[in-house]
Amino acid sequence: MLIISNYHYIRDDFSARYPSVFGLTPAQFRKQLEELSRHGEFISLEKLLEFQHRPLDRNYILISFDDGLKEQYELAKPILDEMGVPAAFFINTSNFKEKIVSLVHKIHLLRSEISSHEILSELQKKGTAPLSEKEKTLAITHYNYDEAETALLKYLLNFKMVLPEQQAFIDPLFEQIFDEHQVNSALYMDKEMLQALHGQGYLGSHSHRHLPLGQVDPEVLQEELKNTQDFFRSNFGKPSAAISYPYGSFEASTGISEAIEKAEFSLGFTMERAANKDLQEDSLLLSRFDCNDLPGGKNDLFKGQHIFKNPELRKWHKNESSIPHKR
């Protein structure tokens, strides 16, 4: 069986005028790794690829990071190296090729300076369509670590509004407060860090621009996959074998397996909170837990029990209508 723990922010200090992100301190990260080591064996991406066509031979744990943040390399990787724990780091290639800040991170930064209530009010003034009751429920379920108002804002921006609408609203606000070039340099890893991670077999794609791939037009999806794989070929000599789907929701991750496979990815990672019995049935819709869902996190779903003792198993892949990668 395979259980995957996913991380974003690793910081010594998360204080802000309006707290906008949830992560772990290095001490908390180390403590969680120590706890997880008592449940299973840590596995690398390269080793995981070997189990596409044969059963998993023991209980494995994969440590993964999304977004290619510099703090992951500077604060988390030394702990991983010291403890001998392999990991997967998924990057948005536009941050490195075009030196831009992902829209999702612009939103995080703005929310640290402006309250969710104020931003929602501005959206209402501009006539943005409100969320339905069903969408409100989905928002609170998906962003379960946020306060309700923040969850609604994030869902409205990330899933309800189309990309041009988001950019037209967020970019002017961002430019009033931040310098994009400075933020890009401070927030994301540099070329040497990427090369080091690739040399260890730790690097994967998080798409090109951090779009919800399952919800964009087919032409945009193809462009996203081509651009991210072109970056990997140009910089590392070969395409990425693994992709982590931005946002990771059911809607953002499913219905695209054929395109993902055509783009030469062998492994795909969602944010379905569940364990993976194997990779043989489907290797492109692997489930992951947020680190806060696991022992040592803010909301341990396992309540102190062994994580491999009767865990919830992934189901999203059973809904996929076109999955040529199933064996």
Score class of each variant (00 low, 15 high):
63 I>C: 00
64 S>I: 03
66 D>K: 12
69 L>D: 08
69 L>K: 02
69 L>H: 06
69 L>C: 03
70 K>Q: 13
70 K>E: 15
71 E>H: 05
71 E>Q: 05
71 E>G: 01
71 E>D: 12
71 E>I: 05
72 Q>A: 07
73 Y>I: 00
73 Y>Q: 10
74 E>C: 01
74 E>H: 08
74 E>N: 05
74 E>T: 08
75 L>R: 15
76 A>P: 01
76 A>I: 00
76 A>H: 01
77 K>M: 10
77 K>S: 07
78 P>S: 05
78 P>A: 06
78 P>D: 02
78 P>K: 04
78 P>L: 07
79 I>G: 02
79 I>L: 08
80 L>N: 05
80 L>E: 07
80 L>T: 00
81 D>R: 07
82 E>S: 14
82 E>L: 14
82 E>Y: 15
82 E>F: 12
83 M>E: 06
83 M>G: 00
83 M>H: 00
84 G>V: 14
84 G>D: 11
85 V>A: 11
88 A>H: 04
88 A>S: 15
89 F>E: 04
90 F>P: 10
91 I>K: 14
91 I>V: 13
93 T>C: 09
94 S>D: 10
94 S>N: 11
94 S>H: 07
95 N>S: 12
95 N>Q: 11
97 K>I: 14
97 K>D: 11
99 K>Y: 02
100 I>K: 10
100 I>A: 09
